[in-house]
Design a binder for these strands. Structure first.
Length: 105
DNA sequence: CGTATGACGAGCC
DNA sequence: AGGCTCGCCATAC
């Protein structure tokens, strides 16, 4: 069949996340179906930066925290971008899924 | 062309 | 209760 690559489908889901909201790798993987959370992480890592229009910053891990990807700076930028959108971080750097969770998680 | 890596999650012992 | 393995797709060298 002629369905787009799995990664492309993941990008489409992330792109649907509204500003001021955050989603988890597992959540997206579950929506896409047929792939594990790692696929989502790999897909976003393949973006190599802001080449795509995918708000990868709105995607965080299951613990409500960002992952230590890249040299450790990428995660810092991610938090900064989310703060710019209105997302608040806990003392531990965690996000409230009850408030900012996508789809009302 | 083949190998290795890359931002998780859940289950199993 | 804790630690470890497996699963999965794409890209780069």
């Amino acid at each position: 069949m002629s369905e787009p690559p799995l990664f492309e489908r993941i990008y489409a889901i992330v792109r649907q996340i509204p500003p001021g909201k955050v989603a988890t790798y597992g959540q997206i993987a579950r929506i896409v179906g047929g792939c594990s959370g790692q696929m989502v992480g790999f897909a976003l890592a393949s973006l190599r930066g802001t080449q795509t229009n995918v708000p990868w910053q709105r995607v965080i891990n299951r613990m409500g925290k960002v992952s230590p990807h890249g040299a450790g700076f990428g995660s810092a930028i991610q938090e900064d971008l989310l703060r710019e959108e209105g997302v608040e971080f806990d003392i531990e750097g965690r996000v409230d899924f009850e408030k900012y969770g996508w789809m009302g998680m």
